[in-house]
Amino acid sequence: MSSGLEHADRDLAAELESPAAGQVGIPVDAICTGCGQIRVKRATLKTVRESSTTTDPTELEVPDLTSFKHVCHRCQTATWWNPVAVLSGLLEREGGE
């Protein structure tokens, strides 16, 4: 899990506030399989949860997650994204899902 709100030269909180992140779901850092861009995206538990039995999103780890479809503005299409981190710091800041 990643608990930071900033990563290298990226402002994760600002990325989460962007309409490109989506409106519903837990914040994850994910990589677009089309162009390789890494961005904060929102994904519902139903969409990304593979075999994890946990219902608490703050306890999720990347191996618990599966790829999900989301819009990539660089690719200009809906494409597959692979989660690389659960952004628990952003999730806790929002007070949950």
Rank of each mutant, 00 (worst) to 15 (best):
W80C: 09
H70C: 13
Q37L: 09
R93K: 04
T58H: 06
E94T: 14
E92L: 07
S67K: 14
L16R: 06
V28Q: 07
A20M: 11
P83L: 03
G34H: 02
P57W: 06
T47L: 05
P63Q: 13
E15N: 04
I26T: 07
D9R: 11
P63M: 08
T58W: 02
I31M: 06
K41M: 05
P57C: 05
G4N: 13
S3D: 13
E59A: 15
P19H: 14
S3Y: 12
V86K: 12
M1F: 10
Q76A: 14
E97D: 12
D11T: 02
F68Y: 14
G22F: 02
W80K: 14
I31W: 00
N82P: 04
Q76L: 15
S52M: 04
D9P: 06
V28A: 03
R10D: 09
Q76E: 15
S52P: 04
C75T: 03
L45E: 02
Q37D: 07
D56R: 12
E50T: 13
L12H: 07
H7D: 05
S2V: 13
R42Q: 09
I26P: 00
A14L: 03
H7V: 06
L91P: 00
E6H: 08
G89S: 03
A13E: 11
C35S: 01
M1P: 02
A30S: 05
S88P: 01
E59H: 12
A20N: 14
L5T: 14
K41S: 04
I26S: 04
C72N: 03
D11I: 01
L65W: 10
S18Y: 03
W80H: 13
V62Y: 04
K69G: 11
V86Q: 12
T54Q: 12
